[in-house]
């Protein structure tokens, strides 16, 4: 475990905690994309099925349980607890456009033709595009709650930090993971616009508003 990966995991965790606190505090899920949360739940469930047959460490197991349960909890908050606050009419990105290419990529680029490896690869590709409904929604509404913006930022930082993690692991262990590395690059590229606006507006204490 190196510092990049550890900070990445912490920022990933922080993003989820921020989102849960926001929804609970404001008793509203306005501005949060249900579709993005659903895709993340799918990412975690398809990737972490190995929890039952592949033990790595207590840290690893704990984090997997955290990501699966917290994301399903967010779905519950949005779908049941604070349902009226979520407006499906502005959450209109077609998730087939993310799921289908991810499935195709998983079938072409994977670490072996077993159900587990294909699901793993699918989850990695899916994760790189899962933020799109949320970014699309942000673009439609033009502005967002500060906390929603911090949530997206923390989530972006998490995958950005996995890039130096992979460079570090290549240098120190000689390990290369082309699938996760490429997916990290794609995901970070999708965030680049967002990062730019975050930097020019939110960091300077202004409200998040799209130009």
């Amino acid at each position: 475990m190196n510092i990049f990966r550890f900070l990445a995991d912490l920022s990933h965790m922080a993003s989820i905690v921020i989102l849960i606190l926001q929804i609970r505090k404001t008793k509203s899920a306005a501005g949060v994309s249900y579709k993005t949360q659903f895709l993340y739940a799918l990412v975690f469930v398809t990737r972490y099925i190995d929890i039952f047959f592949h033990y790595v460490s207590l840290y690893n197991t704990f984090m997997k349980i955290f990501f699966v349960t917290s994301t399903i909890y967010i779905l519950y908050l949005m779908r049941v607890q604070y349902k009226p606050s979520h407006d499906p009419n502005i959450d209109t990105f077609r998730i087939e456009y993310i799921i289908a290419p991810s499935a195709v990529l998983a079938l072409i680029i994977n670490h072996g033709y077993t159900l587990y490896e294909i699901l793993w690869s699918f989850s990695v590709w899916l994760e790189s595009g899962a933020i799109l409904p949320q970014l699309f929604m942000l673009q439609r509404t033009g502005e967002a709650e500060t906390l929603t913006v911090h949530y997206i930022f923390a989530l972006g930082i998490y995958r950005l930090l996995y890039i130096p993690n992979w460079i570090y692991r290549y240098v120190t262990e000689g390990r290369v993971e082309p699938i996760a590395f490429l997916a990290s690059l794609i995901q970070t590229a999708l965030y680049s616009d967002f990062f730019y606006i975050y930097y020019t507006k939110v960091m300077q204490g202004k409200k998040f508003e799209l130009p």
């Binding site: 990966r5 460490s57 690893n60 000689g174 993971e177």
Partner: peptide, 10 residues
């Protein structure tokens, strides 16, 4: 370089 799968990450 080792190209095989790394299963120890999240």
């Amino acid at each position: 370089a080792v190209w095989n799968k790394v299963h120890d990450e999240l």
